[in-house]
Simulated assay, not measured.
Amino acid sequence: MMTTKYCCPNCKTNRSRFNIIDQIAHAVRLDPQSGETIEQFESMEDAGPFHTTYNGPSRRIQCGSCGLIEDEHTFIKFGEK
């Protein structure tokens, strides 16, 4: 794990209590009527041309004091101040 200073942009005082949320995207195809998983793809190449690749953040941070959840870069920028 990388050493990075965080500060909550909402409560502006918390610099020590955070929840680190690692996001893992799973490409699936669902039945439109039941919502049941029809197919789960091992790689994005298998998903086909009409399935967009997930391009969101791989990590989000939650403030352990006020509960704000944001992109990790937001907490890092406030931690640099």
Rank of each mutant, 00 (worst) to 15 (best):
M1V: 11
M1T: 10
T3A: 12
T3K: 14
T4E: 14
K5W: 05
Y6C: 04
C7F: 06
C7L: 13
C7T: 13
C7W: 07
C8H: 05
C8I: 08
N10K: 11
K12Y: 07
K12R: 15
K12H: 10
K12Q: 15
T13G: 04
S16T: 10
S16E: 09
R17M: 03
F18G: 09
I21S: 03
I21N: 07
D22K: 13
D22H: 08
Q23G: 06
Q23F: 10
Q23R: 05
I24M: 01
A25F: 01
A25W: 07
A27R: 00
A27K: 02
L30C: 04
D31A: 01
D31K: 00
P32A: 02
Q33R: 00
Q33W: 01
Q33Y: 01
Q33P: 00
Q33H: 00
G35T: 01
E36N: 02
F41W: 00
F41A: 06
S43A: 03
S43M: 03
M44A: 07
M44K: 00
M44W: 02
E45N: 12
E45F: 00
D46R: 01
A47Q: 02
A47N: 03
A47D: 06
A47F: 01
P49R: 14
P49T: 09
P49Y: 12
H51T: 10
T52C: 09
T52N: 13
T53D: 13
T53S: 10
N55D: 15
G56P: 07
G56K: 12
P57R: 11
P57K: 14
R60P: 06
R60Y: 14
R60C: 08
I61T: 14
I61D: 14
I61Y: 08
Q62A: 14
C63K: 08
G64V: 03
G64C: 05
G64Q: 09
S65D: 15
S65N: 12
C66E: 04
G67Y: 09
G67Q: 06
L68Q: 11
L68C: 10
E72F: 14
H73I: 13
H73E: 08
F75Q: 03
I76W: 06
I76K: 05
K77V: 13
K77W: 07
K77E: 14
G79Q: 12
G79V: 09
E80V: 08
K81R: 15
